[in-house]
């Protein structure tokens, strides 16, 4: 365990911080090196949102806020025009969802995957509202050609991720 000589709470915080950093590295590696190569029917899964939901519902608002802000910031750096947008959305989403962790206690992978897709769709709407000049030409084409495939792909990827995480949790307990 990291920080073996520390107070248990501090130990927990160090572990969470390390996990956040690792997941940021994973997200960046996926986004830059892998995402384009696994495209199917015009869609790719949004790993950033999946990991954000995971951290929010499993580790609370602190870890989720850090991940949402830093991860969003570095992802925004890939497209400077949108700098700050994903960081803002990630911060708000991570903090709010993380705050509800104790009240929601959602373990079901289907529900967690559904939350991931809902957040994905909400973020897309927010980005369109924030940057109307960057909106896709025809809403119908955007809906069918990009949003829907990405939403489906994200749902399936999230379902797999949370299912594996649940099985791992059951195995360790």
């Amino acid at each position: 365990m990291l920080g073996g000589g520390l107070h248990p709470i501090a130990n927990q915080r160090v572990s969470a911080a390390a996990l956040v950093l690792i997941l940021i590295v994973v997200t960046l590696a996926y986004q830059i090196n892998l995402r384009e190569r696994i495209e199917a029917f015009g869609g790719t899964p949004d790993l950033n949102i999946i990991l954000l939901v995971f951290l929010s519902l499993s580790y609370g608002r602190g870890a989720a806020l850090s991940f949402g802000f830093l991860g969003g910031l570095f992802l925004d750096a890939l497209a400077p025009h949108f700098l700050g947008a994903t960081a803002l959305l990630g911060s708000v989403t991570g903090y709010l969802l993380g705050s509800l962790k104790a009240k929601l206690l959602i373990e079901n992978p289907w529900v967690r995957a559904g939350i991931s897709v809902a957040i994905f769709c909400l973020w897309e709407v927010c980005l369109i509202l924030l940057y109307p000049s960057s909106s896709p030409g025809s809403f119908g084409n955007y809906l069918g050609g990009q949003l829907f495939p990405c939403a489906v792909y994200t749902y399936l990827a999230a379902l797999l991720f949370f299912w594996i995480f649940q099985k791992r949790g059951e195995a360790s307990s």
Partner: peptide, 19 residues
């Protein structure tokens, strides 16, 4: 949370050069 929000909004509002 407030710090993250303020920083994000500052980045959003900044000019192209700063971005």
């Amino acid at each position: 949370f407030y710090v993250a929000i303020v920083l994000s909004l500052a980045l959003l509002a900044s000019g192209h050069r700063q971005k």
